[in-house]
Amino acid sequence: MKTWKSRLAVTAAAVTAVLGMTACGGAAGASGPQLSLVGFSVAETANKAAEAKFQQTEAGKGVTFSGSYGASGDQSRKVAAGAKADYVQFSLESDVTRLVKAGLVSPDWNTNSTKGIVSESVVVLVVPKGNPQHITGWEDLTRPDVKVITPDPKSSGSARWNILGLYGHELATGKSAADASDFVTKVFANVTQWAGSGREATEAFDKKVGNVLISYENEAILARQKGKDYDYIVPKDTLLIENPGAVLSKADPKAKDWLDFVLSKDGQTQAAKAGFRPVIDGVKTDVQGANDPSNPFPTPDRLLTVGKDFGGWAAVDKKFFADGALIDQLRAAAVKK
């Protein structure tokens, strides 16, 4: 089985390499290494643009790429199970932690200048064009005429950001944990679709299963770039989404150069154009699809973070998302309402 798999992988890599070379018309040179990027779905657009820019730099000359994109948790489990990767980029820190535990990523991966974070976004509310129900923020999600769609935080790890944004709203406005639980329960009672994945949540929203979709700013921007006529609202207080990226211990040395490029002004500009908030200062670019393309990333009045306001992912997973933890309890309470 193992040899079949590796043979298949070699064949696939060879085919990709050949295709890659043909596509570049040989300009990239045949001698450079190929980096395998494994990432969560929405990172693909930004990475494709950044790859082209990287190949134009001194460090990136001759480097080719193969990319695999999918649900963050699935991608992480795949790499942990032995899929080839030089660089990984996930939605959640815990997906990198899994690889650290598997001995594939160095434990000091998050000690660089951005603490391992390569892109940022915020939790937003997506509504139909024109915002017919005048949704302005989190409070509106408890209204009886509002039907909420969100990916399920238990089946789609990335949706954990959404739920924390919702819960964090009450904390940001100075309420107690009990108030926050009560508020979240009310919103849960309004959820008409706990979608299996972000993709399915969008499908359900397109089919009008609900009228508010809890999503990420970068996904809303990207969808609008691709022609969807959504509007999105950045709540006055919301949660900062921080997507980690890491180089694998056994990666090609060029992977480190790639990570450096990703964190450079050039690299972050490409990510910004695809809707991600830059992780460094001084990146200035127009972003098509943003509410205001010339000021694409407005600063919310209050921006919560998992590290400062929730005590980090390990604490969050235990308190909120473990089996039988707070989210399960609140959902059970919402059903009884």
Binding site: G73, R77, D152, K154, S155, S156, G157, V191, T192, Q193, W194, A195, G196, E200, E203, A204, K207, V209, F321, A322, D323, D328, R331, A332, V335
Partner: peptide, 24 residues
């Protein structure tokens, strides 16, 4: 998965529960 809404206790089926366990 698209039509069921996946609300725990009401419209959540076993295969989705399996997916959730794997994700966790």
């Amino acid at each position: 998965v698209l039509i069921s809404g996946n609300t725990p206790f009401e419209t959540e089926v076993a295969s989705l529960k399996i997916l959730k366990f794997i994700e966790g």
